[in-house]
Simulated assay, not measured.
Amino acid sequence: MKLEKIDFFSPPIVVVAILAFLIMGYIGSFNYRFEDPLNPEVILTILFSCLIFAVGTIAIKYKIQIEDVKEIDFLSENILLILVSIALVLQILNLVLIGGIPLFNSVLKSNATTNIWRIAYPLFLIMINILLAKYYDKKYLLLVVLGALIFGLNGYRTSVLGILGSTFITIYYLDKISKKLGIIFVAVIAIVIMAIGYIASQSIATQHWTLNPLELVFYRAAFTLEVFEKIIPLGASTHGHVLSLIFSSGSPRTFIGEHVLHYTVCLTSTLFGPVYLDFGLIGLTIQMLVMGIFLELIYKLKKGIGVGIYSIIVTHTLIWIETGPTDIMIWFLYLLGLILIAINFNYIWFLYLLGLILIAINFNYIKLNKN
Results as ranks from 00 to 15, higher is better:
residue 1 M to L: 08
residue 7 D to F: 05
residue 9 F to H: 09
residue 12 P to M: 06
residue 16 V to C: 14
residue 25 G to S: 08
residue 29 S to N: 09
residue 33 R to K: 15
residue 40 P to E: 02
residue 41 E to A: 14
residue 54 A to M: 08
residue 59 A to Q: 12
residue 72 I to Q: 10
residue 82 I to Q: 09
residue 83 L to P: 03
residue 83 L to A: 02
residue 92 I to L: 11
residue 95 L to T: 08
residue 98 I to A: 09
residue 99 G to Y: 03
residue 103 L to W: 00
residue 103 L to G: 13
residue 103 L to Q: 09
residue 108 L to K: 08
residue 109 K to Q: 14
residue 110 S to V: 11
residue 127 M to Q: 13
residue 148 A to F: 10
residue 152 G to F: 09
residue 154 N to S: 14
residue 165 G to W: 14
residue 167 T to L: 01
residue 177 I to W: 07
residue 178 S to F: 05
residue 180 K to S: 12
residue 181 L to A: 13
residue 188 V to I: 14
residue 190 A to Q: 05
residue 191 I to Q: 03
residue 201 S to V: 05
residue 204 I to S: 07
residue 204 I to E: 11
residue 209 W to H: 10
residue 209 W to C: 05
residue 211 L to M: 12
residue 229 E to Q: 15
residue 232 I to V: 08
residue 235 G to N: 06
residue 247 F to V: 00
residue 251 S to T: 11
residue 258 E to P: 05
residue 260 V to I: 13
residue 262 H to D: 02
residue 269 S to W: 00
residue 274 P to M: 12
residue 279 F to G: 00
residue 280 G to Q: 01
residue 281 L to M: 10
residue 284 L to D: 00
residue 287 Q to D: 02
residue 290 V to Q: 01
residue 295 L to F: 05
residue 295 L to Y: 04
residue 299 Y to I: 03
residue 320 W to Q: 07
residue 322 E to P: 01
residue 334 Y to M: 00
residue 340 L to W: 01
residue 341 I to K: 12
residue 342 A to H: 01
residue 344 N to W: 05
residue 356 L to M: 07
residue 368 L to P: 01
residue 369 N to W: 04
